[in-house]
């Protein structure tokens, strides 16, 4: 699966497109991570637990988007966009979407 966030896959020709595919997930870390992050919040800097959470979520959202594209028989996704939105404290939704296409 080739994934780009531009209109095309440079050097390849798109023959068919199948419309939007999207993958999303809502995940949370266990209470220990929440507590540590809460403390770190006071001093600033990277919140490793949450970095990891969002990284995992983003991968999961990508995976789900790819699965949708595979269901449609696509072999590439172009114009991919990400969205993040807070759902509840310490739980965010990550969305990935793009256009499923078939390359020559």
């Amino acid at each position: 699966m080739i994934i780009t966030n531009i209109e095309t896959v440079p050097g390849r020709t798109i023959v068919e497109h199948y419309g939007i595919v999207q993958g999303s997930t809502v995940r949370a870390k266990h209470v220990g991570v929440d507590c540590v992050a809460g403390c770190q919040n006071t001093f600033g800097g990277e919140l490793k637990g949450y970095s990891q959470l969002l990284e995992e979520s983003r991968n999961e959202a990508m995976d789900r988007m790819i699965k949708q594209a595979q269901q449609l028989g696509a072999n590439a996704i172009v114009n991919v966009r990400f969205g993040t939105s807070m759902i509840t404290q310490g739980a965010s939704e990550i969305l990935a979407y793009g256009t499923a296409v078939r390359l020559e």
């Binding site: 023959v15 419309g19 999207q22 999303s24 997930t25 949708q68 269901q71």
Partner: peptide, 16 residues
């Protein structure tokens, strides 16, 4: 680039 209408067979966005 031609549009081909295809249907999604299962919902992957909800955890089992």
């Amino acid at each position: 680039m031609r549009f081909v209408a295809r249907e999604l067979t299962e919902n992957v966005n909800i955890s089992p």
